[in-house]
Amino acid sequence: MFTPRVAVASLSGESDAEWARAAASHVGAAFLGGIAIDETAQEAAKELVARDRSEFITDDPTGFIAEQLAEVDAADAPDIFAAVNVRATTADPIGDAAAVCADHGAGLEINAHCRQDELCTVGCGEALLRDTERLVEYVETARAEGARVGVKVRTEVSGVDLPTLAATLADAGADWIHVDAMDSEAVVADVVAAAPDLFVVANNGVRDRETVREYLDYGADAVSVGRPSDNPEVLRRVRAATDEWFTEQTSRADSDDEREATV
């Protein structure tokens, strides 16, 4: 879906076009946002701002997405796959946002990840993990607008079987799943096994060679960097480790082919 197999992950109120451009020389993808795209989600975001969290607050979320993607498009930087992480309480604004993303060749990432009470109370964020029917509706709505679509999720949510959910999202037309592994890194392998057609991006604690290799060894297709995504040294280190791992896999596959050819 993108190369190099390193992304920078959305950080609410921080991950905008300027942030994506700054990371572009190190990564293959940038997930902008998260952005609350309907009135109820925006009100919840304002409550978060009132307790000193950073959020994107705008009266025109769809216009804001278009502006940000246009800035990424116009940047004098390496091409990257851009996607916009969004929060919504109904499907209609998902379609509007997805149409804008499709126009820019960008993807839409549905936020089923944030765990703040204000968001979960109105049905955003990780509340969606327990509402499979609505989450599937969001994926299908975005897909109908021609956008590539993914879902950001987290592990360790009570009552949620993430591998089963991943398979359901793949059947609904999702292209990728972005897994915040928390302290359950091995779940990435279960997601990969359950939904082999999904591009799996692994997130949480990605900082160095050890963490990169752990996720890729579990079968992730790519890794993403969260909090230190504005740190070029971390991005360089993660990029080098990722490139190294995939080079090793290619060399191993070539050796296996040569061995089979001589049998």
Rank of each mutant, 00 (worst) to 15 (best):
M1T: 12
A7L: 09
V8G: 08
S10R: 04
S12Y: 08
G13Y: 08
E14S: 13
E14L: 08
S15Y: 07
R21T: 13
H26D: 13
H26P: 09
A29Y: 12
A30L: 08
L32C: 11
G33R: 05
I35K: 10
E43M: 10
A44Q: 02
A44M: 03
A44Y: 01
K46Y: 14
K46E: 14
E47G: 14
L48K: 02
V49I: 05
V49E: 02
D52F: 11
R53F: 15
P61L: 12
F64Y: 11
A66D: 15
Q68P: 15
V72A: 04
V72Y: 07
D73I: 04
D73R: 14
A75K: 01
D79C: 10
I80D: 09
F81C: 12
V84H: 03
V86F: 03
T89N: 00
T89W: 00
T89P: 00
D92I: 08
P93C: 00
P93V: 02
P93H: 00
G95Q: 01
A99F: 07
V100H: 07
V100N: 05
D103M: 15
H104L: 04
H104M: 06
H104W: 06
G105N: 09
G107T: 04
L108Q: 05
E109V: 14
E109Y: 08
E109L: 14
I110H: 09
C120R: 13
T121D: 13
E133A: 10
E137W: 01
Y138N: 00
V139R: 04
T141R: 06
A142Q: 05
R143G: 08
R143S: 02
E145T: 00
A147W: 09
R148I: 11
G150H: 07
K152V: 09
R154W: 02
T155H: 03
T155E: 04
E156V: 01
V157P: 02
V160M: 02
V160I: 02
D161T: 05
D161M: 04
L162F: 02
L162C: 02
A166F: 09
A167K: 00
T168F: 01
L169N: 00
L169I: 00
D171M: 01
A172K: 01
G173N: 01
G173L: 02
D175F: 05
W176S: 05
I177G: 04
I177R: 06
H178P: 09
V179Y: 11
V179N: 08
V179W: 12
A181Q: 12
D183E: 15
D183W: 13
E185C: 05
E185K: 11
V187E: 10
D190S: 15
V192S: 07
A195S: 07
D197E: 14
D197L: 04
L198T: 07
L198P: 10
F199G: 11
A202L: 09
N203F: 12
G205F: 08
R209I: 01
R209V: 10
V212Q: 03
E214D: 13
E214I: 13
D221H: 15
V223Q: 12
G226A: 07
P228D: 14
S229M: 12
L235A: 04
L235S: 08
R237Q: 09
V238E: 06
R239K: 06
A240Y: 03
A241N: 07
D243P: 07
W245R: 12
F246M: 03
T247K: 15
S251H: 15
R252M: 12
D254N: 15
S255R: 15
E260N: 13
V263I: 13
